[in-house]
Amino acid sequence: MALLAVVTLSAPTARSQEIFAGKYPQQTGEDLFQNICQGCHMPDAKGAIGAGAYPALASNPRLAAAVYPVTVVLHGQRAMPPFGQTLSDEQIANVLNYVRTHFGNRYRDVITPAAVNARR
């Protein structure tokens, strides 16, 4: 059985080429949004529809309770990849505060890095 386990663990994939892991140098909410989020949720945050869909972040009532977007960004949800391993608490707080106060969203409460950390 040990042999089988070793083989499973060492199964190489196309990701083996990811030798120098990229990083996200951006710190402000706007920069983070424009360099990560808009890839899927689009520059106007209105999402997109193909065979499947990316939900709009613009005017999205599901952003009202801060815990929801914090959890989704940290841990992912279905097609949404997790960013908890690659973004800091501060970066996640910054980008969520940006999205929750732009694109037709007007949520007054501020998400702190500590609040992000609590959901890790």
């Binding site: 196309a14 892991a21 990229g22 996200y24 424009q34 360099n35 990560i36 890839g39 899927c40």
Partner: peptide, 13 residues
Amino acid sequence: AYTFGANAFQIAA
């Protein structure tokens, strides 16, 4: 270019 991970997310944006 053929890249994965954080670089790919940033280039996709």
